[in-house]
Write a protein that binds this DNA or RNA. Structure first.
Length: 223
DNA sequence: GTTGTGACCCATA
DNA sequence: CTATGGGCCACAA
C-alpha cells in the first residue's frame, strides 16, 4: 500500500494549526496518511508565500484546504484503494447503494442523511444515484425520501406514487399532508462498526433533533 | 477530452 | 404555508 503524502504549512503557537493537526490525527491512523509539517517561519520563501494564511493542507502543489480541515476535500483526495471493506475502490453510487441497502423495511432515511454517512456525496447526488437505478434493483430506493418527510416529486410522476405505495406496504405511515413522522419511522443509521469498517463517516446523531429526526447535510457546513 | 442529465437542501422573503 | 436562487457532481454517451 502506497502512502499518501500531504503537507501542512503551519507556524508555531498557532491555534488553528494545532487544531488542524489534531483533526488530521484520525486520518493518519485510519488511512495511513503521511504528513510533512513545514514551519513557514523557517523559510522566507514560504513566509512570503503564505503570510498569515496558515495552516494550509496541501497535496503536492495543490491546496486541499486552508485554516480548517475540510474533511470532504480531503476525502476527495484520498486514494480510493485505501478505503477498506467490501467497498474498496467502489464508485460513489455503489457506496450510496451499499448504505441504502441497510435501511430496514418500515424505516426511511433522507437523501442528506445518506450523503452525510457516505462522506463525500451530496444529498443531490444521492437523488441522482437513486434515479440511476435500473428497474428490479435490490436497492430499497423507496426508503429514501426528502428532508421534509415527503416522497420527492419527479419528472415522470408515476414513480412518486409507486414509492409511497411501497412504503405504505412496509408499514410506513403518511399523514394527511403526505408527510412521514421521522420520530416514528426515521432510520437511525447502520451499525456504526459497519460504517467505520467500510471507511464511511460516522452516522449522524441517532434520535435526531426536535422536529427533524435526521442530521442535515453536513457537507455544506463550514467551520 | 465534452456535454447532458438528473428522485436535493438550505436560507431567505 | 409557498416560492426562488445558489450551491452542487458522478456517470454515460
Amino acid at each position: 500500500m502506497k502512502e499518501q503524502r500531504f503537507t501542512v504549512y503551519l507556524r508555531r503557537h498557532c491555534h488553528l494549526c494545532e487544531q488542524m493537526l489534531q483533526a488530521l490525527q484520525p486520518w493518519c491512523q485510519g488511512y495511513g496518511l503521511a504528513l510533512e509539517l513545514l514551519d513557514v517561519d523557517e523559510d522566507p520563501v514560504l513566509a512570503a508565500r503564505f503570510g498569515e494564511r496558515v495552516p494550509v493542507l496541501a497535496q503536492g502543489d495543490d491546496t486541499v484546504c486552508e485554516f480548517y480541515l475540510d474533511e470532504t476535500a480531503l476525502t476527495r483526495r484520498l486514494d480510493v484503494e485505501r478505503i477498506g471493506g467490501e467497498l474498496r475502490g467502489a464508485g460513489t453510487y455503489d457506496r450510496i447503494y451499499a448504505i441504502v441497502r441497510r435501511i430496514p423495511a418500515g424505516k426511511v432515511a433522507t437523501y442528506g442523511q445518506i450523503a452525510a454517512m457516505e462522506g463525500r456525496a451530496t444529498a443531490r447526488m444521492v437523488g441522482y444515484a437513486m434515479a440511476a437505478l435500473p428497474g428490479g434493483s435490490d436497492v430499497p430506493w423507496q426508503r429514501v425520501i426528502n428532508a421534509r418527510g415527503e416522497v420527492s416529486e419527479r419528472a415522470g410522476g408515476g414513480g412518486t406514487r409507486r414509492q409511497r405505495d411501497r412504503l405504505e406496504a412496509e408499514g410506513v405511515y403518511f399523514d394527511a399532508r403526505g408527510h412521514v413522522d421521522f420520530s416514528r419511522a426515521g432510520w437511525e443509521g447502520p451499525d456504526p462498526a459497519w460504517l467505520v469498517h467500510q471507511g464511511f463517516q460516522g452516522a449522524p446523531r441517532p434520535g435526531g433533533v426536535a422536529g427533524r429526526a435526521v442530521a442535515p447535510d453536513l457537507r455544506r457546513r463550514r467551520l
